Amino acid sequence: MPDSERLGTHYFPIQVGQFHIYEVEETNYYLIGPETENYQLRVEAVDSVMLSSGEVQYTIHRSRRLDENSEWKLDSIWNTSVSLNKVVANENNVSFVKLVFPIDEGSEWDANVFNSRSAEYYRYADQRSDTTLADQSYTQTIRVIHSDEGFDSVGRDDRFEVYAPHAGLIYKEMHVWAYFQEDGQVDPNKIVSGRDLKQVLISYGQRD
């Protein structure tokens, strides 16, 4: 029997009927200006199948609503494949290696190995920490850094996710955008494309 504590698979618990609900603040940048949305996102595993590779592939329904008084509406369908050494999420038909097992601080891997994009290396932060989100306390959380390039002459690229034991993804943050450019000149006061996102877990559970 695999040791989930040793491998770290308990940082990505998943089974059919499991759901997570997040509060999301999202800003998309356009040439005409930014547009900001606040909404709730429900991520639920609705089906699973065993692949010939031995991985289990889960069908994930992602639904949105404005607030707790609104009706959920299906937004998209993704899938996630889980094995004893990795988690691969297919997001809008692009596959990313989200986690690798065992979880070792400082480990890094090419998240794009299963898609046609150039290599991009995710890594685990160097230490685990305790945190509180939406009045819920989590211990020994891990941070997966997707990019920490920060600000440069043409824009910004900072992205990371935080996972907690037996809870899964509890927090996600990204800041990816480009400044306005004209005739070789960059205006750092004007963002013309990109996205800011903060996603906070507010509840999770298991349907019967």
Rank of each mutant, 00 (worst) to 15 (best):
V87C: 06
W109T: 08
E68H: 14
T80F: 06
L31K: 11
R42G: 09
Q136G: 01
E71W: 15
N85A: 03
Q15R: 07
L99W: 10
D75W: 06
I103N: 02
D104N: 15
E23Y: 01
E23G: 12
F101E: 05
S63D: 15
Q136K: 12
D3G: 00
F151T: 08
A134R: 04
T9G: 02
T80N: 04
I142D: 03
R62M: 06
V49T: 09
G33L: 10
I32P: 07
I77Q: 02
P34L: 14
L7E: 01
A119M: 08
K198C: 12
G205C: 01
K98M: 12
Q136D: 00
A111C: 13
D3V: 02
V186W: 03
G168I: 13
T59F: 09
H146Q: 05
V43A: 13
R159E: 15
W177T: 06
D75K: 07
F96E: 13
L201N: 02
N28D: 14
I202P: 04
G54Q: 09
Q140H: 04
Q57A: 09
D110A: 05
E149V: 03
Y58H: 08
S129C: 13
F151E: 14
F180K: 11
S129G: 13
V192E: 05
L51T: 13
Y29P: 02
S53P: 03
G8R: 00
Q185A: 10
K190R: 11
K98Q: 09
V24W: 02
H175F: 07
S153V: 08
N38A: 10
E91A: 10
L51P: 07
R65G: 04
D208K: 12
V43H: 06
N112A: 06
Y121N: 13
Y30T: 14
L7N: 09
S70T: 04
N28H: 06
D67C: 07
R42K: 15
F151H: 11
V97P: 03
I170C: 04
V97Q: 14
L133C: 09
R6W: 09
H166P: 04
H61S: 11
Q127E: 08
I202V: 11
L51H: 02
V24T: 12
V46M: 14
I32S: 14
E105I: 14
I202D: 03
T27S: 03
F180A: 11
D126Q: 15
T131N: 05
S63Q: 10
